[in-house]
């Protein structure tokens, strides 16, 4: 399966190797990794908790993958999103796209992240040094990033 929602860390090199092993038709691999930042709105955070909607999350990620495959000639897609408690510096999300040529792989990776961020049912709660958890607000910039694909 090309979509995973898991608590465990992922290994980018292993994921790429499993997608490219034994193939000679792939000319380009793009990987995007999202990482937990150590501060939010100028304040340090000690951890981030990711909640999601089991079932709907996997459906949305699969739907977004299908949209990308409909727009670009992709030979492979891999999406891994972590859940649970993560510390600053830890990986949150991995998107890997494979194509014959780089443009499709670059664009599809960006498209997948823009759609994932605005439609996959995940919610982040950041805990600061004072131990208080704060839900992260959705960003208008993320909606704008998605909208440009809708008019393209």
């Amino acid at each position: 399966m090309s979509v995973s929602v898991q608590a465990a860390a992922f290994n980018i090199a292993l994921e790429v190797r499993s997608l490219t092993a034994g193939r000679t038709d792939i000319g380009a691999v793009v990987t995007f990794t999202g990482i937990v930042r150590g501060e939010a709105k100028g304040h340090p955070i000690t951890s981030m908790e990711l909640e999601h909607y089991p079932g709907m999350t996997e459906r949305e990620l699969a739907r977004v993958e299908a949209l990308a495959r409909g727009r670009w000639p992709l030979q492979g897609v891999r999406i891994i999103h972590r859940i649970g408690v993560l510390r600053p510096g830890e990986d949150i999300v991995l998107v890997v796209t494979l194509s014959s040529h780089r443009q499709a792989a670059f664009e599809a990776a960006e498209f997948l992240m823009d759609y994932l961020k605005t439609s996959a049912p995940f919610w982040k709660k950041e805990t600061g040094a004072d131990g208080v958890g704060m839900w992260v607000d959705a960003r208008e910039a993320d909606n704008k990033a998605r909208e440009r694909w809708e008019s393209a």
């Binding site: 999601h52 949150i92 999300v93 994932l116 996959a120 049912p121 919610w123 959705a138």
Partner: peptide, 10 residues
Amino acid sequence: IAFFPPVTGG
């Protein structure tokens, strides 16, 4: 039927 805030994953 589910209700939730705007999503913030990624």
